[in-house]
């Protein structure tokens, strides 16, 4: 990394932000490596919400997800000079995010305090007063909607970790099988098999509640 890039997230060379907005990811990466640190701002802006949603849907904890997104960007910043620019930047970013999310899930399964916090969070969610978001809907419709939301969130959380990552990448992030294989480091066959199992489990969890 060049010294010019050390003035973190501040421009080292003047340049309109809109010019970065027009660049694709690969050119932004190159601009950053050439010392234009504002290019990194643009990458952060493009990916922060996507990565946050991906990690949040994978681990189910909003605050922790944000911490992990920060960690993703720190790692990107730290290792961007080693990034193979023949690959897609988004795949690399998702790979880092996916690894961090998987580590988090593993650590959680070993940490009784985190399990307790998750239980408490669910309890609080179950006991909070009903919020009427949409006044045009009938109360029973709203109840059904809210019930369905909770149900699908819980169904995703009940999937095994390696199935969940593949499922979220496919259903929520819209990644192709090839991209998922790159992100997770698995071959295509494994991705297909995991996705099929995840979809079957997801449908099996939900089906009894929809009658």
């Amino acid at each position: 990394m060049t010294l010019a890039a050390t003035h973190s997230l501040r421009a080292t060379r003047p340049g309109p932000a809109s010019s970065f907005a027009e660049l694709d990811d690969a050119r932004l990466v190159q601009a950053f490596l050439d010392g234009q640190s504002r290019a990194f701002d643009e990458l952060v802006g493009r990916y922060q919400a996507r990565l946050l949603n991906f990690i949040y849907r994978t681990i189910g904890d909003r605050e922790r997800a944000e911490d992990l997104v920060q960690e993703v960007f720190i790692r990107i910043y730290r290792h961007l000079h080693r990034f193979d620019q023949t690959k897609k930047f988004s795949t690399w970013a998702y790979t880092i995010a996916s690894n961090l999310a998987k580590n988090e899930l593993r650590n959680r399964s070993r940490n009784p305090l985190v399990l307790f916090q998750a239980l408490r969070k669910n309890w609080e969610a179950d006991h909070r007063p009903i919020q009427f978001e949409d006044f045009n809907s009938r109360p029973d419709d709203m109840f059904h909607k809210r019930h369905l939301r909770t149900l699908v969130e819980q169904s995703v959380e009940r999937l095994p970790e390696h199935h969940r990552v593949v499922f979220v990448l496919r259903e929520l992030e819209g990644k192709t099988y090839e991209e998922i294989a790159d992100i997770t480091g698995c071959n295509l066959g494994t991705v297909k098999s995991r996705l099929n199992r995840a979809r079957n489990s997801f449908a099996a969890i939900i089906a009894p509640h929809l009658d």
């Binding site: 922060q48 946050l52 997800a65 720190i74």
Partner: peptide, 29 residues
């Protein structure tokens, strides 16, 4: 069930980063 579930999942409100996210990231960098 699968179709309904996936549709509901995609309809979940997306989460946004907090206001302090950018500043915290700058500090960390």
């Amino acid at each position: 069930a699968f179709r309904t579930g996936v549709t509901a999942l995609r309809d979940l409100p997306s989460v946004e980063v907090s206001r302090s996210f950018g500043e915290r990231l700058r500090r960390r960098i």
